[in-house]
Design a protein around this nucleic acid. Structure first.
Lengths: 152, 152
DNA sequence: TCACAATTCTGCGGTAATCGTGGATTTAAC
DNA sequence: GTTAAATCCACGATTACCGCAGAATTGTGA
């Protein structure tokens, strides 16, 4: 998140791909797949986690775990969009923030319990300094969500 | 993805939250945290995975693993947006599709290697039957990405 | 090219976690 | 109240995890 681009060799990429398929695969299985000792594979994984290139986490469809309202908010800003984006990232209900080129400067995904909650979050976003306007896209259905795009 | 809403008890929710923090936490640690035997905790996790309520995976910032171009594509459709969304979900470069209410019917996130690749993906999206128009937001920076929103 | 330092890897032993199974317990349906 | 299904626990055999010491590799500067 903070560092610049990091060099990843073929082994690191292969390890990432294995964990993209199954985040709970054992170190021993990783080692066998990439041709390293188990200890070396473990060190590699730990380094990838420590450097924040990769995180291994449980991902859920929020609507299945009690968050009935999700939305993407397109935001137009004045001043430095990244600065505004970093501040919006601090809002707990915000799980995803990207700075973009296009008719929005920022795209902000939020996870809420219900409509009043969403309304409150939108209000807080719009109050943020540097936010000129926003447009909300309420999620009706999550059609696809995957993470195994591999590496290049 | 296919089934309706599934009932999650407090234990299941607690397990999900633990795995949202650390996808590689041991079954034994989960068992201790939720007050079950190790075997029971393992069975619960397996059930959550099998039912596709939860997936445990490695998540990366695509720009760090060789995908230099990412974008969100806002799509306006005719006909059933979900149908179009499900078809767009089959495009390999598409990693995220949601049906929304607002000035776009669908939001489609794509992961590409470079500009020509992105251009080609956009072309394929626009050619899709039922797609009236689209607007592309090229990602400049990923400010935040997290998954530990918990459960309710 | 060589020497030196830093990093990475291997092998291994002790400890802990995983996995399967059988039987007890709880839950749900009628 | 009875039955069936689901869930849980106990436990042993297997496998994985983890830390460490030394070897091998990589990278750097003279």
């Amino acid at each position: 998140m903070t560092d610049g681009p990091v060099r990843l060799d073929a082994t690191a990429k292969r390890i990432i791909e294995l964990l993209q398929e199954d985040g709970r695969i054992s170190y021993a299985a990783i080692a066998k797949a990439v041709g390293l000792s188990e200890a070396a594979a473990r060190a590699r994984v730990q380094k990838l986690l420590d450097s924040e290139i990769m995180q291994v986490v449980a991902v859920t469809d929020p609507t299945q775990v009690g968050f009935t309202r999700q939305a993407m908010i397109g935001v137009r800003t004045e001043g430095d969009p990244m600065r505004v984006g970093d501040r919006l990232a601090e809002v707990p209900e915000v799980d995803y923030v990207v700075t973009t080129a296009g008719s929005f400067d920022l795209l902000v995904e939020v996870v809420c319990e219900d409509d009043p909650h969403l309304l409150d979050v939108i209000r807080r976003v719009r109050e943020q300094e540097g936010v000129l306007s926003s447009e909300t896209f309420v999620y009706l259905k999550l059609n696809k969500q995957h993470y195994n795009w591999g590496t290049r």
